[in-house]
């Protein structure tokens, strides 16, 4: 589904990504972790072309992301993305947040988009909030709406960029529950997250990044059982201290 092949990226002389290579197969759930500044958020943003990269190739469902001829908007319209800071559109009601891209990008009619949006809103347990504005919801609620917004586009895979790291601790689980459910239904997912409980529960593989490189790319049992690199061991030890 997603294939990342020797991708490198630099800002000026600063190397952000170095020769990153990995694959995500259909139905797989991949967790990407690593210390801050390791390039994991940049890597996931390269997947839908939000960040350009200088060398290597990324293909999503056979379409090359870095190819200037690729219609990126079209590609992005069926790759869902969830952001650290939710990024709901503050000037629109929750319903409008769920329907605007369906209407303007996919060309669905108003009623169809609305039905779809409200169904997904119900699924994330927020049907009662349809008429509210993002600023009137808690962070956890906003993030669940953001997941519903991405799902409304019928994505072939989902990218999560630290979806819980801006949330208060008591709100993390409501978001993770939605993600777990999604994983169990067979959604292809690539998640940048430090939530190791989530990784243990649903991940097929764990990728550990440090200083712009993929240091480990292993099944979750292998990763949690016996990480091969010293850096990954240190990282896990630190995470567990929380």
């Amino acid at each position: 589904m997603i294939s990342i092949d020797t991708v490198s990226k630099h800002y000026g002389s600063f190397q952000v990504l170095t020769d990153c290579t990995t694959q995500v197969k259909k139905g797989e759930v991949i967790v990407v972790c690593g210390p801050s500044g390791s390039g994991k958020s940049t890597l996931i943003k390269c997947v839908n072309g939000l960040e350009p990269f200088q060398s290597g190739t990324i293909t999503v469902n056979g379409v090359s992301v870095g190819d200037p001829k690729t219609n990126l908007s079209k590609l992005r319209s069926h790759v869902g993305m969830v952001f650290q800071h939710f990024e709901l559109f503050p000037h629109m009601s929750i319903t409008d947040n769920l329907t605007i891209a369906q209407e303007k990008v996919l060309g669905r009619n108003k009623d169809e988009a609305r039905d779809k949006g409200l169904k997904l809103l119900d699924r994330v347990g927020l049907k009662a909030h349809a008429a509210k504005f993002p600023g009137q919801l808690s962070g956890g609620q906003q993030q669940r709406v953001a997941i519903a917004r991405a799902l409304a586009m019928d994505p072939i895979c989902m990218l999560f960029d630290e979806p819980t790291s801006a949330l208060d601790p008591e709100m993390i689980n409501e978001v993770l529950d939605v993600m777990v459910e999604l994983a169990q239904e067979g959604m292809t997912m690539m998640c940048v997250t430090h939530e190791m409980g989530f990784a243990r529960k649903v991940a097929n593989r764990v990728i550990f990044m440090d200083k712009g490189q993929i240091v480990e790319d292993d099944s979750k049992d292998a990763f949690f059982g016996a990480p091969r690199s010293e850096r990954a061991r240190q990282f896990l030890a630190k995470i567990l201290q929380h």
Partner: peptide, 11 residues
């Protein structure tokens, strides 16, 4: 992130 969110939705 707002711009990215718009682009990520396919706008």
């Amino acid at each position: 992130g707002q711009k990215n969110a718009g682009l990520a939705l396919g706008f």
